[in-house]
Design a protein around this nucleic acid. Sequence first.
DNA 1: CTGAAAGCGCTAACAG
DNA 2: CTGTTAGCGCTTTCAG
Lengths: 336, 336
Amino acid sequence: LRSTINDVAKLAGVSKSTVSRVLNNSGSVSPQAREAVLKAQRALNYHPNRVARSLVSRSTMTIGVLVPDLRNPFYSTACWAAEKEMRQHGYSALICNTDNNPDLESKYLQVLGEHQVDGVLVLGGSDNINPLLNFKARENMPLVFVDRPVLESRLPWVGIDNVRGGMLASEYLLDLGHRRILFATSDFTKAERDRGIGYKNALAARGIAPNPDLYITIEEDCWKRQNLSQIVKLFNREARPTAIFASNDLKALTLYNVLKEIGLGVSSDVSIIGFDNIDVTNLVSPPLTTVAQPIAEMSKKGTEMLLAWLKGEEMIGQAVEMEPRLVVRKSATAVA
Amino acid sequence: LRSTINDVAKLAGVSKSTVSRVLNNSGSVSPQAREAVLKAQRALNYHPNRVARSLVSRSTMTIGVLVPDLRNPFYSTACWAAEKEMRQHGYSALICNTDNNPDLESKYLQVLGEHQVDGVLVLGGSDNINPLLNFKARENMPLVFVDRPVLESRLPWVGIDNVRGGMLASEYLLDLGHRRILFATSDFTKAERDRGIGYKNALAARGIAPNPDLYITIEEDCWKRQNLSQIVKLFNREARPTAIFASNDLKALTLYNVLKEIGLGVSSDVSIIGFDNIDVTNLVSPPLTTVAQPIAEMSKKGTEMLLAWLKGEEMIGQAVEMEPRLVVRKSATAVA
DNA sequence: CTGAAAGCGCTAACAG
DNA sequence: CTGTTAGCGCTTTCAG
């Protein structure tokens, strides 16, 4: 049904090599032959079969994208930026949602290998990169990481200094006079734990002793199934926290609701600061003060690095660190 | 570098046909041969090359997903559900973000064709499906639509009755005593226009004459670049609207901000109802009352239909209509 | 039960 | 400038 290069060759009265040459602008072809081929192509509405082409060229023009959760605006934005950059360079994105599940991650890696993707962009995920390292070694596969630690692997990486970001957030609250600051995290990723370190550092720098009760872990998916009784308890105590630093915006917004349920107002009663600066932070009330992570640029940069690698540039050891940036909105105010 | 079926065959001391047979569980193979092959496979860490396999089997186990904007939570949820369903059936998702751009859509279609995807799932988009129809005819490509009109094409479709959804929203506001109800839409898609029809129908049923001033169009991407002066003007008038029906949640949340800027409280001063029921509607304050569209199920169902088609089932003419459902939260209250 | 052979649609030397 | 030849890695008749 679909026409092949042979059909075009036949109709144009040339050999398929010639057809291939004009379609790929390789070698040189006489004007007449070129014209005939182009005409035949149009007549047959011929488009080359990339599968066949890939088999010989050993490049599928396809890149795998590993992402923890597409429903999370942070990651959907990352995918959006990555896909856009890939497309602009002729690559297609094979998107794989790992559900934060390491087993699935490994399975996907295998599938991506079988599909002969030209490389893999890894967005976020746990710190266990061993399966990825094995994969890279086994398949000799270019791998670039965004927002996920690469340890000693020297694999290309783009991210931010999360310790610094954590300090930025905490210092802002401290400057507003807050002293009992709750840090709410899932501690699922190194990024989050680093933010926690920044939090502790900031407090320590002001001579505030760490209080384990104020470093609490809630599940990563809390925004889907909310049962945050531990937090509620904390705010029913005598000396309740006056501010919250949430390890990401989704958690911060979830806490908006928790506070509301127990009759506490964000900003008026409790200041909140988030992390990431996802789009919706502007749409909530009060608008969320947060530490911005330029995820779209990070993802774009990561893709650029992967593309450079595919073009043959040496990328091992490359690391790009972007700047976290405090975005002041209305959710954090001076302590009463 | 990567081992091939020949390497396995050699190591196992059999022909590559036999290797192929055990790997695909086709034909019959002696237990010894099977064992030898499996052992060799493990030893070489062999994984079949799907590109080569696809070339002969004429199936890439790959499905294209056309989506208008991954950053929109409505669509990222749709992609999430689609990808999940595909993966569970061994298919991979080639995700294509069209940026609501018809030209890009056509380009993507061509790329997907060249990649020999087994089918395409179309999520949302404009009503102009001609390029898709041509593509389907040309490439004989299975195509399923989610949340996008298919006109007379009889292509498989899953969606909701948007007129009905629009009435649901409008009637709820009417029941709360509202009479000056603003409908804010981009009217970019038929879905939105249908909601507008539902709005008009509902008003008409109560004998309320349509007021063109209260049917206003704002850009689809208003949540990114907000300049909603027309809305502001409307609310500075004497008899301002007491309620807003926004054609989707993102617009509703944007209007939260607009109202706030001009000192009007959502629910207290102006009731708002949205459409879609995206995840964040729960996280804003007040939580958004909206008409839920079961996008995850819709997307899953659409994928199931596409998969059924790929298995050879007759799908032309199939249409699945799901139910829009009013989700009452706090953003709409009785008129003062 | 198994191997040899042909071929999927395309690219890439290699002669001419 | 162009056609012929030989595969890319795999599946699939078809004999045996």
